[in-house]
């Protein structure tokens, strides 16, 4: 930079700023994507390639690792357990959470602040820790080592989100729409099913998927509460010590893929649901 260029400086500066900005965006995208790419390479390599050195930076499209994963004892049933538990969590958290979200958005009632505090408190609490005493309780009630038992704990984890997300979703539906339905011959229930439900359904789906992901990804409670019927995360955690590398990577890949799809499916709602929930 010499004195000659000072005339064009503002333009140059803007251009330079633009380049820095774009470079930063690309760099941050790479920061997210490159580690995922490495996992993909490992998953699509033969077990031998995964354990060899140095690594190729391109996938070999060898399904050896994935086949090994599928044939590894207990892995597929762990995958099945994960899906069952996550699906149960999804249904439970919406069925239980959505009515409360509706109540918070539509009514002023005594104890509302206390209730909100309870919800927020659960969010600020290391919830998986509760798996320890529940393990004892579940043994007494026969829920130990069952999908339902774990789903109940995961629901505790997902419920604060379900309540807050549905709260913001319901708050986005003007109450006048419901009132109009009442004046047009609806009861509270029919107004809900004819007007609110159709409008809210995509959002409810999104928050259900969110609950699914929470359960799908949970490690600690799953490891504590399941013994025979391990979920995928619990199974992988248990085998971390002795399992061969290619098994870990294939398992990690199987863990990541549904999450990627789900985040893509709910991306539109991610921001809306956090926006209002914070107020």
């Amino acid at each position: 930079m010499t004195a000659v260029t000072t005339d064009a400086n503002p333009q140059d500066a803007r251009k330079a700023g633009r380049i820095v900005y774009l470079a930063a965006v690309v760099l941050l995208c790479a920061w997210v994507l490159v580690p995922l790419y490495f996992l993909l390479i490992n998953t699509l390599s033969s077990p031998e390639a995964v354990n060899s050195f140095p690594k190729s930076f391109f996938p070999a499209f060898d399904l050896g690792s994935l086949t090994f994963f599928a044939n590894f004892g207990g892995m597929l049933s762990a995958l099945k357990n994960s899906i069952i538990v996550a699906a149960l969590t999804m249904v439970l958290s919406i069925l239980i959470g959505a009515p409360a979200g509706y109540a918070l958005s539509r009514f002023d009632f005594r104890g509302k602040e206390l209730f909100r505090l309870l919800i927020l408190l659960t969010r600020a609490f290391p919830l998986p820790l509760l798996a320890l005493p529940l393990a004892v309780l579940f043994i007494r009630t026969g829920l130990d080592d069952t999908a339902l038992g774990l789903a109940l704990v995961h629901t505790t984890l997902a419920i604060p989100f379900a309540v807050l997300i549905t709260f913001s979703l319901f708050s986005g539906i003007p109450i006048e729409l419901e009132e109009a339905a009442w004046t047009l011959g609806c009861t509270r229930l029919t107004a809900f099913t004819k007007v609110v439900l159709p409008l809210i359904l995509p959002g409810i789906t999104a928050s259900a998927i969110f609950a699914f992901v929470i359960s799908w990804n949970e490690v600690f409670a799953a490891a504590v509460l399941t013994i025979e019927n391990r979920t995928l995360t619990a199974f992988l955690l248990q085998t971390l010590g002795e399992a061969p590398l290619h098994l870990k990577f294939a398992g990690g890949f199987i863990l990541v893929v549904p999450a990627l799809i789900f985040i893509f499916a709910v991306r539109k709602y991610l921001f809306a649901m956090w926006g209002i929930a914070n107020r």
Binding site: E176, L177, E179, A180, W182, T183, L184, T187, V195, P198
Partner: peptide, 20 residues
């Protein structure tokens, strides 16, 4: 009585036209 049984109809300030 609930609104539906009062023989009334109402027009709202923000119209409340059902979007779906």
């Amino acid at each position: 009585l609930p609104p539906k049984d009062r023989g009334i109809a109402m027009v709202f300030q923000n119209y409340a036209v059902f979007p779906h």
